[in-house]
Write a protein that binds this DNA or RNA. Structure first.
Length: 104
DNA sequence: CTTATGACTATGA
DNA sequence: TTCATAGCCATAA
């Protein structure tokens, strides 16, 4: 399995339950390397997508913001998907990390 | 081998 | 408050 940091990242993102979101740094920290937050995002870019079992739409910024212009179908689609899973959005357009932050 | 890049985060102005 | 810059290190060329 561990063919690289990407595979480990995919496996971690796959463990994010519905109605829950995690920040890049959060996932990287669970992998034991909080400095690789950038690669988590980079791995998502190379990820097989939701169809591949990697719900990259559940991965957001630490502030709860979505990836600007890099989502699979646009940040609006990502928000719609998250809302459909039960994720709460703030009036600012950010995810409610207060209640939807993923806890291992 | 080296250089460039990046879905991040923290810090400073 | 927002905007800009630095540091992080694996992957690609």
């Amino acid at each position: 399995m561990s063919e690289g940091f990407f595979e480990r990242t995919y496996d971690m993102v796959r463990q994010i339950p519905e109605g829950r979101v995690a920040s890049y740094g959060q996932i990287a920290a669970m992998l034991g390397e909080p400095r690789r937050a950038r690669f988590v995002g980079f791995a998502m870019h190379s990820s097989p997508g939701v169809a591949g079992g990697v719900p990259c739409h559940r991965v957001v910024f630490k502030d709860g913001r979505l990836a600007p212009g890099f989502a699979f179908g646009g940040p609006d689609a990502q928000r719609t998907l998250l809302e459909a899973e039960g994720v709460i959005f703030l009036p600012d357009g950010r995810v409610d990390m207060d209640s939807c932050s993923w806890e291992a």
